[in-house]
C-alpha cells in the first residue's frame, strides 16, 4: 500500500481529526499548567486516569468512562485541597499514590487481555473509532470554549492570586475550574499519547512557548501551534516510517522545547554582546 493509500484509510483519518482536537486543547490548557507550575498535578491526573480506565475495563465499561470519572474526581480533589498553590504538592502526591494503588488492584483483579492496559499507558491513536473522534472533538471544543471565555481571570489568578482575590475573584473557584479543564484535557490526550506520555502534548509545547514569548496571548497561540504541528507530524511519521505515533509526537514535542531553549540562549547571548 502506498503512502497516499495509507493516509486515506479511515483509521488514519480518524486519528487525524482526533489529534487535531486534542493538540489544540492541550496546547491552550498546557500554557496555564506551565504558568501555574502545576506540571506535577497534570502528571498525577494522568496516572489517576490509568486507575479509572483499569477500573472501567474491570467492570466491562468503556475505558473513557473510567478516565472521565477518575480524572475529574482527582481534579476536583486537588482543586479544593490545594487551592493555594503553596500547599498543592502534598495533596497531589497523596492523590497520585492512592490512585496508582487502586490501579494496581484493578489490574490484578482483571484476568482478561492486557492490551487495554497497554493502550491506556502508551496511547493507541490508530485504534480510534468514529465515535471516539466525536467524543474527543466535543470535549476538546468545550475545553477551548471555556478557556477562551475565562482566559483573563485564569491568567490573573495564576499570576497573582492575592490581587485577584482582592479584586473579587474566588481563588478556590478558579483553581477548581482549572483542574476540571486539566482533567478533561488529560482524558482526551490519553486517547492519543497515553498516560505516560501525556506531558508531550500538555507541557512540552507550552513550556517551549513560554520560553519564546512574554505575551500570554502569543504564548497560548504558540503552544497550540507547536502541539498541533507535533501531533500532525507525529501521526505522519508513524504512518510513513513506522513506530508508535505516541513516540513520534513525544519526540517532536520534546525537541521543540529543547530547540526553544537553545534559541533563547542564543538570543540572550546575542543581546548581551550587543549591550557590551
Amino acid at each position: 500500500m502506498s503512502l497516499s493509500d495509507l493516509l486515506s484509510t479511515s483509521f488514519v483519518q480518524h486519528a487525524f481529526y482526533a489529534v487535531t482536537a486534542v493538540a489544540l486543547a492541550a496546547g491552550a490548557v498546557g500554557y496555564f499548567v506551565v504558568l501555574r507550575r502545576q506540571a506535577f498535578a497534570a502528571h498525577a491526573i494522568g496516572h489517576v486516569g490509568f486507575a479509572g480506565a483499569a477500573g472501567a475495563v474491570l467492570l466491562g465499561l468503556s475505558p473513557i468512562v473510567g478516565l472521565l470519572v477518575f480524572c475529574l474526581g482527582a481534579g476536583l480533589l486537588i482543586g479544593v485541597g490545594g487551592a493555594s498553590l503553596d500547599e498543592s504538592d502534598a495533596v497531589v502526591g497523596v492523590t497520585l499514590t492512592a490512585a496508582l494503588g487502586l490501579g494496581v488492584l484493578f489490574i490484578s483483579l482483571y484476568s482478561g487481555y492486557a492490551n487495554a492496559t497497554y493502550s491506556i499507558l502508551f496511547g493507541q491513536i490508530l485504534g480510534v473509532t468514529w465515535d471516539d473522534v466525536g467524543l474527543v472533538a466535543a470535549l476538546s471544543l468545550g475545553v477551548l470554549l471555556v478557556v477562551s471565555l475565562s482566559y483573563r481571570p485564569l491568567l490573573f489568578a495564576s499570576v497573582d492570586a492575592q490581587s485577584a482575590a482582592a479584586r473579587g475573584l474566588s481563588i478556590r473557584a478558579m483553581s477548581l475550574l482549572f483542574m476540571a479543564l486539566l482533567a478533561i484535557t488529560t482524558v482526551v490526550a490519553i486517547q492519543i499519547v497515553g498516560v505516560l506520555l501525556v506531558f508531550s502534548l500538555l507541557v512540552a509545547p507550552a513550556a517551549a512557548a513560554e520560553v519564546l514569548t512574554s505575551r500570554p496571548q502569543h504564548a497560548v497561540a504558540l503552544a497550540m501551534t507547536i502541539a498541533l504541528v507535533s501531533a500532525w507530524a507525529g501521526l505522519f511519521f508513524g504512518v510513513w516510517i513506522g513506530g508508535p505515533v505516541s513516540f513520534w509526537i513525544t519526540a517532536l514535542a520534546a525537541s521543540s522545547y529543547l530547540g526553544a531553549r537553545l534559541f533563547d540562549r542564543n538570543r540572550v547571548r546575542h543581546v548581551r554582546r550587543a549591550l557590551a
Partner: peptide
C-alpha cells in the same frame, strides 16, 4: 490584568 483581569 488590573484593568480587566477579573472579567470573564
Amino acid at each position: 490584568l488590573g484593568f480587566d483581569g477579573p472579567r470573564f
